[in-house]
Design a protein around this nucleic acid. Structure first.
Lengths: 117, 117
DNA sequence: TGCGTATATAAGTATATAATTATATAATAG
DNA sequence: CTATTATATAATTATATACTTATATACGCA
């Protein structure tokens, strides 16, 4: 008996891949697979305007790949591990380099706020 | 020791995912992972104009995901299994339904030309 | 209450994308 | 050679996308 992997419809997969076919969003997802992050951390890391970051996160949220949770002033994003494409996304992320170092770098510079909850 | 998967740069992965973030091209790649196909087969299956099909194939060819080979009047496309993102693409395709049935359907209708080489 | 910080949303713009139509190229059949 | 078939390319157009700037909202704090 060969092992069967649960599949998602081509339409669904294409929509997810289209979103992840952007360097910024793909890196975001790779970071979120390590730990939850707040908007200001992405702004700091990507050297990109805050509205631009918010708009990328909005797209990821709209198709359900990420979820948000407010903690005081900050809004944290995390991967939605219950999304129907989670195993697809997860296996895909295993093929790009870990982004853990970027989070550690942020922490060293005192720019991580995740410690403040 | 944990198993290490060879990774590709985020830029490279994003470019590939962007291309596969299109239903037509994603389905094409899924079909090509089963067997090589010629342009007219895609035209028949996708109910789409021939130039449109050719342009999708051109994009896949331009980044090296597929290769072409002329056989008489026909031009066949096949997956490039040596592409640096092959394992990424291959594992990704395992998460969408097999397209083998579509090829068999074509064959039943006498529309496969792969038998004529 | 009013101010500063964090984030979201809206509007505008430049660029990218996918389709169509028309045309060009290449091979085969007669 | 000419006609036909298969495919590619070019030009055009409509739509989608990603960014910018400006503004709105929400929270925390004095």
């Amino acid at each position: 008996m060969s092992k069967t992997i649960s599949t998602v419809e081509v339409d669904t997969a294409a929509k997810v891949l289209k979103l992840l076919g952007d360097k910024t969003r793909l890196t975001m997802m790779a970071m979120l697979s390590e730990d939850e992050c707040c908007v200001c951390e992405f702004v700091e890391l990507f050297q990109m305007s805050q509205p631009s970051i918010s708009q990328h996160l909005r797209k990821l949220k709209d198709i359900g790949l990420v979820e948000e949770k407010r903690k005081g002033q900050w809004i944290f994003y995390r991967m939605n591990k219950n999304h129907e494409t989670f195993t697809l996304v997860d296996s895909l992320l295993q093929h790009i380099p870990s982004q853990k170092a970027r989070l550690i770098e942020l922490e060293k510079r005192g720019l991580r706020v995740s410690c403040c909850d």
